[in-house]
Design a binder for these strands. Structure first.
Lengths: 230, 230
DNA sequence: CGTAGCATTGATGTGGGTCAACGTATGTGG
DNA sequence: CCACATACGTTGACCCACATCAATGCTACG
């Protein structure tokens, strides 16, 4: 691994508070992998070979069962994925594929497990990442159980606009994928957008403009379901 | 805390590999609480005051939003709950209430956080618990997204029968609660049971008998969605 | 300028929610 | 021991969110 890469990743939350010695030990056999959209990084049912850290890009956790496909979550930098599988040593529950061109750090699972067992700072930092992932999925489950598809879209738009820091922004992803992410059919997404026209949303291709107040009245966002940790 | 209680909890997975010194430090300000069905143990939106460990009984994580209530998960012994909120120090995402008479250990959140920061064995053990919770919720999300309500019921019954080690067993909980747990209305649960009569399920009040093979043909269980970690 | 994706629109089907009525237990007090 | 109340489960009628299938439009790109 190049020194510049080493510098880049040293600052990642997954290494927060970790001593130089431990960092070197963790990174010794690590690899950085550049990945194109659509590349499958790991497959559900396999035992975890690496802990993955997303340096930049966007990645999708998904699953197939009995002919049904579902998108379960997106991971964005500086998040890590399959932390839980690495920690328990059990088989992975989801597959993961690249959505946007991404740069990914892979740490051999056994090295990670050894470091966790040895060092409180490592365990603490990776545990924090795991806790963030947990809360992410929990919010997703709540979102799924307690809101209609249109409400889910409304809250997604609200959050995107907030992250963009502007009422006008572009969807970073295709509408098909957005529909999957929100757990609805592509056709239904079109109709949901149509409904939201009455609640302060204007769509032009990939560009969306929202009147936040009006949309929020409809969406009823909640920090306990939207938002995101750190 | 009494010595007998101290002995009981010492063996719990959450303390696996933890030194006597750390154990004593963690337990110094801990309390054991006996709780009746229906008691609310903690409320979503509050900051975590304790890490909870379920010694015995059954407990339900749930949430309310905009007039909608949802049951999100059950925790059974020797599981812990709100691990993620304690780890991050952020507000709790769910409320938790007792379903069956339960005995619960409460460890002050700050003590837990301090111990995690200090000691790899503690961080490792509590992180493992968190990983198990993560995988639990992930399976639940998959279950929700990729199966119909009737399929969810079928797989629940299959799993219960397996845990009971017998094709005949009693539902440990009321049907109303079971419906909530499976994310469906009580009325629909009745109909789902009716459908499953054609697939090897016989119900008599609280007692269920399943022909496993036939039911499995319908339910199509998967270790990546059913089952449960340790 | 066709052809290959995507996205929208329309028609129709269905899983599952909701409301209401009706059982079926398990009490409780007369 | 019966009459009645309360809680819980079932059944039926109806409705709606959302899926599915099919046709059409839109943009892009060789």
């Amino acid at each position: 691994m190049r020194t510049s890469d080493r510098h880049l990743i040293r600052g990642f939350p997954i290494f927060r508070g970790v001593s130089d010695t431990l960092f070197e030990r963790l990174v010794a056999r690590a690899e950085i992998h550049d990945s194109q959209p659509g590349e499958v990084l790991l497959t559900e049912g396999d035992p975890p070979a690496f802990l993955f850290v997303l340096l930049n890009g966007l990645v999708e956790a998904y699953s197939s069962h009995a002919g049904v496909d579902a998108t379960l979550s997106f991971i964005r930098p500086p998040g890590a994925f399959i932390v839980a599988a690495v920690w328990t040593g059990q088989v992975q529950l989801t597959s993961v594929r690249t959505v946007q061109t991404s740069r990914i750090l892979r740490l051999p699972a056994e090295d990670v497990r050894a470091a966790i067992a040895d060092d409180a700072a490592v365990a603490s930092a990776i545990g924090l990442e795991l806790a963030i992932r947990y809360r992410d999925i929990m919010r997703e489950l709540k979102n799924q159980r307690m809101r209609s598809a249109t409400e889910r879209l409304a809250n997604w738009l609200l959050l995107e606009s907030e992250v963009a820091g502007s009422p006008t922004f572009r969807l970073g992803i295709g509408k098909g994928l957005l529909a999957a992410r929100l757990g609805m059919a592509g056709e239904h997404l079109s109709r949901a957008f149509a409904i939201l026209r009455d609640h302060g949303v204007t769509v032009a291709g990939n560009e969306v403009t929202v009147e936040r107040e009006r949309l929020a009245d409809f969406a009823r966002p909640s920090v306990l379901m939207d938002g995101q940790d750190i």
